[in-house]
């Protein structure tokens, strides 16, 4: 519960943060809300020599509708701010609701979307939502900026497509009302034991296409291709159960611990896939 010694710098701009990252090399770590990094430092599972605080940077803030109608969220927006966003509640309620269901009030007041996505805890909620919404992650690095599709960004446990020296600046996705997230909470941490996000394209009572992603059950947020296929053309909500039935079967690797065995998590993947689909369909 006592971290090793470290230096602390508060960046005043993204450019400065990038420069400090360059300077600091592998010893340097970005600090956003600190609610994943600091617990790891206290356990001495992470021992960075330099923390570069990007928490309050204006350039990383904001939830805005862009000219093309897409919604962009700055990396430093906290879960609480996202949960309270009128824009999101109207245009992509899944995002606001998911943020509202993260941890507890303290966690939501400090933790940021950029931190959550960059850290990629296997039980984090927002990664699945971003994959389901086909969001784009915006990244800035020493060699300029690049965009990565969420489903390519999450690669493995705590592993994402982010090079040393790069910063996640935000996410961007098309508005989507008929999307919902359902999770089974790990009762101590409130992370997802299993969480499923479903984003549907509805055509009357049936689903023309769907993107469905799972978190918690496996090493990282990923699409449930079988469920997506089964949903294409399915009538909803009646068809939700059969589309979701095999959701867990296709997962190659399933986490297992005190809170949920592999078998349980597989079974719960189907349950929460169905719940997410039903909730999404209910939004019409």
């Amino acid at each position: 519960m006592i971290p090793t010694a470290f230096d602390y710098r508060r960046a005043t701009s993204v450019a400065e943060a990038l420069a400090l990252l360059q300077e600091g090399g592998p010893e340097a770590k970005l600090l956003a809300g600190g609610h994943s990094l600091i617990p790891m430092m206290k356990q001495r599972l992470a021992e960075p020599g330099l923390l570069i605080d990007i928490g309050g940077l204006d350039e990383l803030r904001g939830i805005e509708e862009q000219d093309d109608g897409d919604i962009a969220i700055g990396a430093a927006m906290t879960h609480a701010e996202i949960a309270a966003s009128e824009l999101l509640r109207a245009q992509a309620p899944i995002v606001a609701e998911t943020a509202a269901a993260i941890g507890d009030a303290q966690v939501r007041n400090r933790g940021t979307i950029g931190g959550s996505l960059a850290h990629a805890d296997p039980g984090a909620d927002l990664p699945a939502v971003m994959v389901a919404l086909d969001a784009t992650i915006a990244i800035l690095g020493p060699n300029g900026d690049r965009q990565v599709a969420a489903e390519d960004f999450f690669q493995d446990i705590l592993t994402v497509d982010l090079e040393e020296g790069e910063i996640v600046t935000g996410v961007c996705f098309a508005p989507c009302r008929s999307a919902a997230y359902a999770k089974l909470e790990q009762r101590a941490s409130k992370f997802a034991l299993v969480g499923v996000a479903a984003a549907l394209t509805l055509d009357g009572g049936s689903c023309s296409s769907a993107r469905v992603a799972v978190t918690g059950a496996s090493s990282h947020a990923q699409r449930l291709g079988g469920v997506e296929d089964a949903l294409a053309g399915a009538s909803l909500p009646d068809g939700a159960a059969s589309a979701a039935a095999g959701a867990g079967d296709g997962l190659e690797f399933v986490n297992e611990d005190l809170h949920g065995s592999e078998g349980y998590r597989r079974a719960m993947t189907a349950v929460f896939a169905r719940r997410a689909i039903e909730a999404a369909a209910g939004r019409g």
Binding site: P39, Q43, R187, A188, S189, D257, L258, H259
Partner: peptide, 11 residues
Amino acid sequence: PVTASFMDYVM
């Protein structure tokens, strides 16, 4: 011990 923090010990 596998429940040595509040992340695993359910209060």
